[in-house]
Each structure stands twice: as C-alpha cells, then as structure tokens.
C-alpha cells in the first residue's frame, strides 16, 4: 500500500493496458461474483421502500420494477412492531454480555499458553482447542444437547444418582449463559491465535530488563505483556463493536424452537422469520437495512475512536 508506483503511472493508458490486461482478466471473475452476490443485493434493498410482491412479474427484477413504492411505510410498521424491539434488545444484551464474559477469555488463555515452556505441550493443547472453531453450529448445538440436554449425559448421570436434572437447553431464563458457553466452547481456543502471535513479537529483553529491575511475574504481565497486546485488543474491540448487531445467526436459528422467541429472537432471526418464511419481503428488508445502516455507523464510529486513542484501527487514510 505504501509503494507509490509513480514511474508506472506516467506511461499512457494504452501501453499500461497492453501490459496489465492479464491482471484485469484475473480479477474479473471475483469482481463479477461480488457484483452479482454482494452489490446487486445491496441495491436490491430498495424493496425496503416498496410494497414488494414477488408475483408481480416473472422474475425478481420484474417484480421489483412493478411493485409500488410506499416510502417509509415498512419502517413505520417495523418500528411499531414490539417483536422488533425485543429482538434488538436481545441482540444488544447478548453482545454486551459476551463482550464482558467472552472477550477476555482468549486473552487469558493466550497468556496462560504463552507461559507454558514445553513446546510440545503447547502445540498439543493448541491443536485440541482450535478444533471446535471448525465445527458447524449444527454440530456445536448437537454436542451441547448431547452433553447437557434432557436426554444428555449430564441428565443421565444425575438421574442415575437420583437427582432430577435441571433444564438447560430449553430454559429461556438461562439462555444467555448457554449461548455464551457455546461460543466459549467453539471459539475460545481460536481466539488465542492472534494474541499468541502478538505475544511472540514482544522483545524478550523487555522481560529480562524488567526482571533485573525486580519486577515479578505479575508485574511483567501487567507492564509488558498486556501493553504489547493493546493494539490487537483495540482492533478486535472495534471489529466487535462494528458487528454489535450480529450475534451467531445460525446458533440462534437452531435453538429458537427449543427456548422460544422471547429469549432467542435476535435481529437476524427476526428478519428470517418475518420475511423469508412469511413472504413479507419489504418489511424484512427494512429490518435488514436498519441493521446494516446502524452497523456501518458503528464501525465508522469505532474506527474514529481508535484513531483518537492513537491506534491504527481497521483502516486509515494512508
């Protein structure tokens, strides 16, 4: 990104085209896919301002052209729907809860792993704890049902011991704990990668000098390791904040039946249930557009905040 390439730029366009056309050919398929499956749908958000009716044409495009515009009616209807505010509230509380109870865990585990001196033990533990990251949500929920569900291992053992097992997988009151436990199981190991990489770039002489000055284990952790992680922590916090309105969509869709809408409806599942399954596309698109707009504002804000704190952030102007 830093190379300026001024010498290249002076050549006339025809000569540069003759030289660079193979590069353009290489980029073309990817650009076409993004155009069709990312940018066209982005423009397709106009259905949020329409009384979209898929039967008004032979194709989605024709139906789009033929559907009447109704201004902000879909948004008015959306904001007047209590279930939408419930879903928004659920989403935000889950994000906030996981920011406090999930976010610090990979940092702690990375610090712990970093302090393990035996390379072999470290690699073994890493191999095992990364694995669940690659499981689908269907599998993760399956494992939780298998261990903690009504017919799961825990219930089975408790019943044999004569204790009636608690409801875990279907209890809306503890659902927040359950989904966070699932996220921890799936991603706490994977989350350590980026912190471990950052820890490995810290100059060991810093630790040595601190030790020579009489700083103990914990003080070295506090004054050297954690400051070394600061840029990564800020970066990940920004990304999380920009994504505050997305919580594991499949995770909630899979468990919404079991615990009910009150606890498990988040913005994404709200869109799914109010648009795709009912065919009320305009209304659902309005909810989706609301989410995308708020998300965009959040990520821009968070990035601004990072610059204010003197960090690089996700992107910068350079």
């Amino acid at each position: 990104m830093t190379r300026t390439g001024t010498t290249r730029r002076r050549a006339p366009l025809r000569a540069r085209l003759r030289r660079d056309w193979p590069l353009l050919v290489m980029v073309l398929p990817g650009a076409l896919l993004l155009l069709v499956f990312h940018y066209v749908p982005t423009l397709g958000n106009v259905v949020a301002f329409q009384d979209y009716n898929p039967y008004l044409g032979d194709s989605a495009l024709q139906a789009l052209v033929n559907s009447p515009f109704i201004g902000l009616d879909n948004f008015r209807a959306l904001f007047a729907t209590p279930a939408f505010w419930d879903a928004l509230w659920n989403t935000l509380s889950i994000t906030a809860f996981q920011l406090v109870f999930f976010f610090p865990l990979p940092i702690a585990l990375a610090l712990l792993l970093d302090s393990v001196l035996s390379r072999r033990v470290r690699t073994l533990v890493q191999t095992i704890v990364y694995l669940p990251h690659f499981f689908s949500w269907v599998l993760v929920v399956t494992f939780f049902v298998q261990m903690l569900g009504g017919a799961g291992l825990l219930a089975q053992e408790l019943r044999q011991a004569g204790i009636s097992p608690p409801e875990i997988m279907t209890n809306p009151d503890t659902f927040l704990l359950l989904v966070t436990a699932e996220v921890v199981w799936k991603d706490v190991g994977w989350g350590t990668i980026v912190f471990l990489a950052a820890l490995s770039t810290i100059d060991p002489h810093l630790y040595e000098a601190a030790a020579a000055d009489g700083a103990g284990r914990w003080r070295r952790l506090w004054h050297i390791a954690l400051p070394g992680l600061r840029p990564v922590i800020v970066l990940l916090l920004i990304l999380r904040l920009g994504d505050a309105l997305s919580v594991g969509f499949e995770q909630f869709l899979l468990q919404r039946e079991a615990v009910g809408r009150q606890a498990a409806e988040v913005l994404d599942t709200f869109v799914y249930y109010h648009a795709i399954t009912t065919g009320d596309y305009g209304f659902g698109a309005a909810a989706g557009l609301f989410k995308a707009a708020v998300g965009l504002v959040l990520i821009l804000l968070a990035n601004k905040l990072a610059h204010l704190f003197g960090e690089r952030g996700v992107y910068s102007r350079s």
């Binding site: 990817g30 423009l43 397709g44 989605a60 495009l61 648009a275």
Partner: peptide, 24 residues
Amino acid sequence: LLFFFLLTFLIYPGLVPSYLVVTG
C-alpha cells in the same frame, strides 16, 4: 478495483435482497 473488493467489508447487503437475487 481494490476499493470495490474492500468496500464489501463495510456494506452488508442483508438477507432479504440476497435471497431475492439468488432465487432470482
């Protein structure tokens, strides 16, 4: 072109329009 690729990080098309395009 690079901007075209990277902008997708910031813009999220949403479930409904994506569904309409893929089925469309």
